[in-house]
Simulated scan of single mutants.
Amino acid sequence: MEFGLPKEQAVVKTQPPFGEVREGRVALTPQGVRELVERGHRVYVERGAGERAGFPDGAYEEAGARLVSREEAFGRGEVVLKVGRPTLEEIALLRPGATIMAFMHLAVAESSLVEAMAEKGLTAIGYELIGAGGRRPVLKAMSEIAGRLAPQIAGRLLEAPFGPGVLLSGLPGIPPADVVILGAGVLGRAAARSFLGMGASVYLLDKELSALEEASKEATGAVAALITQSRLERYAAFADVLVGAVAVPGERAPFLLSRALLSRMRPGAVLLDFAIDQGGIAETSRVGVYQEMGITHFCLPNVPALVPRTSSHALTATLLPFLLEVEEDPLGVPELRQGAYLLLGQKGGHLE
C-alpha cells in the first residue's frame, strides 16, 4: 500500500507570550516509516514534513521513504496521514477514494468540508476515535501531553506583565495558586498530577464518580468532587486557573461556562480551554490566546504542537501498530474502522 505524509501548514496567531504557534507535528517519525517500508509499503514524504519536529529529510530517505512535492504527498497516497483536519485545498489534492487520517473532530467542522470529502468518495478516519473497547490510545497520548503541559502554560500566563504576577507554588507563608480542573479523564488527571507537582492547590470536578475515584488514586492531594451547578459557580469564583478538560470523543464539547459565571471569576484568572478543538466549554471561547472579561483565555486546538518532537514520537508509537496491520484496506483493521467518520464518501460511524 502507498502512504502519503504531507507537511502541516496550520498556524495560529496569538498574543505574547506565545506568538505564532505552528503545527510542527508529523504523523510518522523516520523509524515509523522504516517499519512500514520493511512491511512492503511505499511511503511518500513531502520535503520538510518533519523539520519542525527535528526529523530531517535525510532521515526519512535513509528509512526508505521517497521525498516528493506537496502535490505528490497528497495525490500518490492511498492512505494520507496528516495531523490536523484537512483543508478544502488539501482535499482537492487527494485522489478519489483515498483514505485520509488526522485529528478530524468533524462534529465541529464546517459542513462544506464534510461535503467536499463526501463528493470525492473519501474515507475519513479520526485519530481521536481509533481504538477498541473504549480505549483510544492516540487520543490518550495527546491528552496526556496536553495535561502535562498545563502547568507550564498556566505559569507563563500568570506571570507579569501578561498576568497578575502569581506563582503557582506560592511560598512558605504565602498560599499557592488555586487550580480548578473540569473533567477527570486522562487530560484532567494528567493536569492534576502536574499542578500538584508544582505545588498548586488542585480541585477536580467531574460528573462520574468512577472517574473521581481513579483521579483520587493518581492525584493524591487533589480535592475530587462531583460537579453540580452551585459547586461549579463556587469553585470558579476562587480559581486562579480554570482548566477545561471535558470532552466527548466525536461530539461537540459540553457547554459549561456562561458569561454570567465567568463574570464571577477573579480578574487576571486564566482559563485553559483544552476542549476548543471540539467547540470549547465557555461562551467566550474561540481559537487563540486573548483576554476577555478580565480573564486570560488560552484556547489552542493543537496544544501538543508546542512540543512537536515529543508529540510526533507519541503519535507514531500509538498509531503505527494499527498501520502495520493494514494489508489492502485500512477499514479491514477494526480499530481503524472504529475511527471512521466517512466510508468511501458515505456517512458512517460517528456521522450517522
Results as ranks from 00 to 15, higher is better:
residue 59 A to D: 15
residue 141 A to P: 04
residue 63 A to V: 10
residue 143 S to H: 07
residue 138 V to Q: 08
residue 165 G to K: 10
residue 125 I to V: 14
residue 72 E to Y: 06
residue 131 G to E: 14
residue 163 G to C: 13
residue 139 L to N: 13
residue 140 K to Q: 15
residue 66 R to Y: 14
residue 176 P to K: 06
residue 92 A to V: 06
residue 178 D to T: 14
residue 104 M to G: 04
residue 160 A to F: 14
residue 115 E to S: 13
residue 80 V to F: 02
residue 101 M to R: 07
residue 54 G to Q: 13
residue 104 M to I: 00
residue 173 G to I: 13
residue 53 A to C: 07
residue 52 R to Y: 12
residue 111 S to W: 13
residue 119 E to M: 12
residue 99 T to L: 02
residue 72 E to K: 13
residue 74 F to L: 00
residue 69 S to C: 02
residue 94 L to S: 08
residue 63 A to Y: 09
residue 123 T to Q: 03
residue 98 A to E: 02
residue 91 I to G: 04
residue 73 A to H: 06
residue 146 A to D: 01
residue 166 V to L: 14
residue 69 S to A: 05
residue 169 S to A: 10
residue 164 P to G: 07
residue 53 A to W: 04
residue 105 H to W: 07
residue 84 G to V: 13
residue 142 M to F: 11
residue 145 I to W: 12
residue 114 V to N: 08
residue 59 A to F: 12
residue 93 L to F: 00
residue 57 D to P: 05
residue 160 A to K: 15
residue 145 I to K: 12
residue 184 A to D: 11
residue 167 L to Q: 11
residue 76 R to H: 08
residue 150 A to C: 06
residue 163 G to A: 12
residue 65 A to K: 06
residue 176 P to F: 02
residue 128 E to K: 09
residue 127 Y to D: 03
residue 124 A to L: 02
residue 112 S to V: 15
residue 180 V to P: 03
residue 128 E to L: 02
residue 104 M to K: 06
residue 148 R to Q: 13
residue 168 L to G: 04
residue 100 I to H: 00
residue 95 R to T: 00
residue 124 A to H: 03
residue 185 G to D: 09
residue 128 E to P: 07
residue 62 E to C: 01
residue 70 R to V: 01
residue 63 A to F: 04
residue 66 R to D: 14
residue 151 P to W: 11
residue 115 E to R: 15
residue 186 V to A: 09
residue 187 L to E: 12
residue 136 R to H: 15
residue 107 A to I: 06
residue 115 E to W: 12
residue 182 L to C: 12
residue 80 V to C: 01
residue 70 R to F: 04
residue 56 P to N: 13
residue 89 E to N: 10
residue 121 G to F: 04
residue 128 E to T: 07
residue 159 E to A: 14
residue 96 P to L: 03
residue 81 L to D: 00
residue 171 L to G: 14
residue 176 P to M: 05
residue 70 R to Q: 08
residue 72 E to V: 12
residue 96 P to A: 03
residue 153 I to S: 06
residue 78 E to T: 01
residue 144 E to F: 12
residue 175 P to N: 08
residue 158 L to Y: 10
residue 94 L to T: 03
residue 88 L to G: 11
residue 121 G to I: 02
residue 93 L to H: 00
residue 125 I to P: 01
residue 123 T to A: 08
residue 88 L to H: 07
residue 179 V to K: 09
residue 182 L to Y: 10
residue 113 L to S: 10
residue 169 S to W: 00
residue 77 G to K: 02
residue 87 T to D: 07
residue 72 E to Q: 15
residue 153 I to D: 05
residue 96 P to Q: 01
